[in-house]
Nucleic acid binder design. Structure first.
Lengths: 234, 234
DNA sequence: TGATCTTTTGTACGATAGTACAAATCACAT
DNA sequence: ATGTGATTTGTACTATCGTACAAAAGATCA
C-alpha cells in the first residue's frame, strides 16, 4: 500500500528509509559504489541490513532510488534558471547567466534533500568514473536533454562558435565541476591555504568565470590543427 | 636475485608480469579498483590468480607498481616540455606551450608502455574519484611538485592574475582532462557524431585552446563576488 | 644430467559480499 | 484490547573475495 500521513509518521526511527538513503548517498559519493557494502550503509544509518533489502530490494535499487530522488528537482531548477538566463539582453551577461544556471544547482540544491546537491553531484562524478551501469543509463536519459538545451542556449549567445567546440567546452565544464567536488582539498593544498576548495561560493565564482572565458575562446577552425610549439620527442 | 637477460627471456609466456600489469591497468581504469577482482585480472592476462600474488604480493601492491611504472617517465616528460615551454619568448605563445606541456604527456605517453599514457591518466581519474588511499598518497607526493612548477610557470606568463585564480583554473584543467578520458563517448553523443571524443589529437587541441582562454580570463578581485543575475530561489 | 632457482599452477582457507526469509515488533483502525 | 498490515530484526545461505602455500613445471649452469 501507499504511505499514510496520519498522526505520527509511522516508523520507529523518524523515517528509516530516508536515513538509509542519506547514508548511502554519502558513502557512495565518498568511496564509490563497490567499496561500500549494504552492511556499511545499514550501520551508518543505524539500521539493520535486512531493512535495506526491505525498502530497496537490491543494492542497485538503492542507487536507482537516490538518482530518482535528485534528478527531477535538479533538472527542474536548471530549466528554470536557464529560461531566466535566456531572457538576459546583453550577450555577454547572458552567457554568464547560462553557465551559472548550469553550475549553481549542481552545487547548492537540485532538491533540498538534506545536504544539498553537492553531495549528489559528487556521487554522479564517482559513478561516472567507475563506469557504473545503473548510473550511466539514468544519466544519459535524464541529463542529455538538459545538456542539449544548455548547448543550444550557449550557441545562441556565441553564434560564431561551431557547435562542436561548444560541446567540447561544456564537456570540460562538467569535468571541472565534478573534479572540484571530488577533491576540493587539492585546491587548498596547491594554493597553500590561500583558497578554500570546499567553499561552494568560491568554487562557483571561479568555475563560472573560467568557463565563460573558455567559451569565448576563438573557434578551432581546423578539425585538428597542429601547432608544434615544442620539439616533438624527448 | 635480479633479472638475467640471457639467451631466452626466462618465462613461458613472453613476460607474464607485464601482461598482468597491462590487464590490471585496463580493468582498473575501466571499472575502478574495487569492482575488479584479482581473478578477473589473472584471467584477462591469461595467468593464474596465484601468479598475481607471486609477482605483486597484494592487490594494493599491484596498483602501487602500476603507479611506479608510469609516474616517473610521465613527470620527466612533463618537466622537459615545461622547460622548453618556458623558453618561448612571446607570453601568449608561452602560455599555450606550458598548457600543452601539461596536457600532451597525459594523453600520449608518460612512458611508452603499451597503450600510452591515456590509459594511466584514466586510471588516475578513476582512483581519484574512488578516493583510493594508495593512489592518493602516491599522487600527492609525486605530482604536487610538478603541479607547483606548472602553476609557477603560468604565473610568470600571466603576472596580473593572482596565484589563487591560477590554482583554481589549473584544477579545472585537470578535471576536464580526467573527464575527457573517462567518458569520451559523451562528447560524440552530445555532438551527434560531429566530434570524436576518443580522438586524442582532437581532445588535446580543444582542451588546450579552452584552457588557455580560461587562464587569460580577468582576475576575480573579490574573494567571492556575488552576481545575482537571476532570481535566487525557484 | 642433475642441482638449483624462478615461475606457474592448483587448491584451500577465512572473511565478507548480496540477498532471502521467518520471527519479532510496532502503529493504528476498529 | 485486539487484529492487521507495515516495518525491523536476526540469521542463514551461497558466492566470491584476497591471500597463502605446497606441488609442478620450466629455466640455467655446473
Amino acid at each position: 500500500m501507499v504511505r499514510k500521513p496520519t498522526s505520527k509518521e509511522s516508523a520507529r526511527k523518524p523515517n528509516m528509509r530516508e536515513a538509509i538513503l542519506a547514508a548511502a548517498e554519502e558513502l557512495f559519493a565518498t568511496n564509490g559504489f563497490n567499496a561500500v557494502s549494504v552492511r556499511d550503509i545499514a550501520q551508518a544509518a543505524g539500521a539493520n541490513p535486512g531493512s535495506v533489502t526491505y525498502h530497496f530490494k537490491t543494492k542497485d535499487g538503492l542507487l536507482l532510488e537516490i538518482y530518482r530522488r535528485h534528478c527531477g528537482p535538479m533538472n527542474l531548477r536548471r530549466s528554470e534558471l536557464l529560461a531566466a538566463a535566456r531572457r538576459v539582453r546583453d550577450l555577454q551577461d547572458r552567457l554568464e547567466a547560462i553557465v551559472r544556471a548550469y553550475v549553481v544547482p549542481a552545487f547548492t540544491s537540485g532538491s533540498d534533500l538534506a545536504g544539498g546537491g553537492a553531495r549528489f553531484t559528487r556521487l554522479r562524478a564517482v559513478m561516472s568514473a567507475e563506469g557504473n551501469e545503473v548510473a550511466r543509463k539514468i544519466i544519459a536519459q535524464t541529463f542529455d536533454d538538459t545538456s542539449h538545451a544548455f548547448i543550444d542556449a550557449i550557441l545562441e549567445s556565441l553564434p560564431h562558435i561551431p557547435r562542436t567546440d561548444i560541446v567540447w567546452r561544456s564537456h570540460f565544464l562538467l569535468g571541472a565541476l565534478y573534479y572540484s567536488l571530488v577533491t576540493p582539498d587539492r585546491v587548498s593544498r596547491l594554493s597553500r591555504g590561500a583558497a578554500d576548495g570546499s567553499d561552494p561560493a568560491n568554487a562557483i565564482e571561479q568555475l563560472v568565470q573560467a568557463t565563460v572565458a573558455s567559451f569565448q575562446a576563438p573557434a578551432l577552425d581546423q578539425p585538428a590543427r597542429r601547432r608544434p610549439v615544442i620539439s616533438s620527442k624527448t
